[in-house]
């Protein structure tokens, strides 16, 4: 469990990135922090692995204040995926993935065989292991970034706009891959994005931030869509533009769900047993 307790961040030059933020993230939960630039979402994410230290309040992992932990050891125990992958350009894919396990004392051999497994987990051909990052496509690089983050088998995975720099088709691909991986591995994931669709797709819970790290609304995607807290949330999730309104049309005896532009979104089936997730 990760707990933010009244944290705030003010930089030496006087700018306040986060005013007063509190949140609890349960183990094995995927929480998405979503907001525009300046909302402090990345700052909050980096407080978890101490790349940013809060000026006020505390961040605790399983009840232990991270401020009391050695930053290097802390970071080796937490997976981190950043935008544009942050891979080391002068090292092969395999070396990139094995860096942290080797530093933690895993034998090179063991780290390598595990790295090859991980490449498969993230949907990469192990034959790519000998390549260098610049020889991969943007989507492939992001997959390597995810494999590297998983290499030390961390309980927590931090993802900072990991799919922001790839084209929409590849992004959709990576998002599906992410859902599959999470179903398999059940990590505690904190994911930062400015893309509300991505947030609704990947988050068990979504936290919508205003500038300064102020929580505008938090809840499951369903809760937020069903009852946007205010105009800010309504405009952010696109409810006011009608982009999310769907209606049902009866065609040849079947009920078709149609979006605001008149495009068919799917067929409406009566709930079978439990309600499926949107």
């Amino acid at each position: 469990m990760i707990a933010f307790e009244n944290v705030g961040k003010t930089y030496p030059d006087g700018t306040t990135a986060v005013e007063d933020f509190s949140l609890e993230i349960a183990s094995h939960e995927a929480v998405v922090l979503v907001g525009t630039s300046g909302s402090g979402k990345t700052t909050l994410l980096r407080m978890i692995n101490r790349m940013v230290d809060p000026s006020r309040g505390r961040v605790a992992i399983d009840g232990e204040d991270v401020a009391g932990l050695d930053p290097v050891r802390l970071r080796r125990s937490i997976g981190y995926v950043m935008q544009a992958s942050g891979l080391l350009p002068h090292r092969s894919v395999l070396d990139n993935v094995t860096t942290v396990p080797v530093l933690r004392g895993t034998s090179r051999r063991e780290a390598r065989s595990r790295a090859l497994e991980l490449l498969e987990t993230v949907g990469l051909d192990p034959a790519l292991a000998r390549r260098y990052p610049s020889q991969l496509s943007g989507g492939q690089q992001q997959r390597v970034g995810v494999a590297r983050a998983l290499a030390a088998d961390p309980n927590i995975l931090l993802m900072d706009e990991p799919f922001g720099a790839v084209d929409p088709i590849v992004r959709a691909d990576l998002q599906q891959e992410m859902l599959r991986i999470q179903k398999e591995l059940h990590k505690t994931i904190v994911f930062v994005t400015h893309d509300i669709d991505e947030a609704f797709l990947l988050g068990d819970r979504v936290v919508l931030l205003r500038p300064g790290g102020v929580v505008a609304q938090q809840g499951t995607p369903q809760e937020i869509l069903a009852a946007p807290a205010d105009d800010f949330v309504r405009s952010f999730v696109g409810a006011d533009r009608g982009t999310r309104t769907l209606h049902v049309e009866e065609i040849e005896g079947r009920r078709i769900v149609v979006d605001a532009d008149g495009r068919a979104a799917g067929v409406l089936e009566p709930p079978a047993g439990g309600a499926a997730r949107a």
């Binding site: 790349m51 970071r75 080796r76 981190y80 950043m82 080391l88 942290v100």
Partner: peptide
């Protein structure tokens, strides 16, 4: 970004 990349995966500043 490479400094950050190094820090994020748990390298010391020397490493």
């Amino acid at each position: 970004g490479q400094h950050e990349a190094g820090a994020a995966i748990g390298l010391t500043s020397g490493q």
